[in-house]
């Protein structure tokens, strides 16, 4: 694809990129934590858009449901309930270089893993028009030959975490 043919997909890709990256800059740039949380949700919404462009509507819906509907609200709640956190004014603390180092390492690792396989003669891989239907996804998760064991282990882990949270939060009576 050149810059000459300006398809709706390209336009949508650009839009979601602005949403995702702009949201991410908003997260790190805001001085107010609640605003950061809102920006984070904008960024995650952009990622849901990418899933739609990649013909994976199921993942897009799950992205919105889990990351915006559940985790985003949880983060906002946690920030709002800790009143002292909402009025932070300093931009840096003593550990800023540690955080920068960690972020840089993660960024470089991701860049290497994304760029290296497509570097050189191979070029970009063609994305098939339909990746997998939701029915195929369900079969892969729940049939014997698929990923039923990892799924069950993961759900058991989540249930255990939920029970643990309730036990910790419970008042002794």
């Amino acid at each position: 694809m050149t810059f000459g043919d300006f398809t709706p997909e390209a336009f949508a890709f650009g839009f979601f990129t602005i949403l995702t990256l702009g949201g991410a800059f908003g997260v790190v740039g805001s001085r107010n934590l609640v605003r950061s949380a809102v920006w984070l949700m904008v960024s995650l919404f952009g990622i849901a858009g990418f899933f739609v462009l990649l013909s994976a509507p199921f993942l897009a819906a799950v992205q919105v449901l889990v990351y915006i509907g559940a985790i985003g609200i949880l983060i906002t709640f946690a920030i709002m309930l800790t009143r002292s956190m909402t009025n932070l004014k300093e931009r840096f603390n003593k550990q800023w270089w540690l955080a920068a180092l960690a972020a840089l390492t993660a960024f470089l690792l991701l860049m290497v893993t994304v760029i290296v396989p497509t570097w050189g003669e191979m070029g970009a891989e063609e994305i098939p028009p339909t990746v997998a239907s939701t029915a195929q996804l369900g079969e892969a998760f729940f049939s014997g030959w698929g990923y039923v064991l990892p799924l069950e282990v993961a759900s058991l882990l989540l249930t255990a975490a939920m029970i643990g949270a309730i036990v910790i939060a419970r008042e002794d009576d």
Binding site: V34, V38, M41, P57, F58, A61, V62, V64, L65, I68, G69, A70, G72, I73, T76, F77, M80, S133, T134
Partner: peptide, 25 residues
């Protein structure tokens, strides 16, 4: 006609909660 229409509804409906938090705060 989304293949995942019902899930889409649940996902979108959860955004309304967000708006309430935003307004309240």
């Amino acid at each position: 006609d989304l293949e995942i229409g019902a899930l889409y509804f649940v996902a979108v409906a959860s955004i309304g909660t967000l708006s309430v938090i935003m307004a309240g705060w």
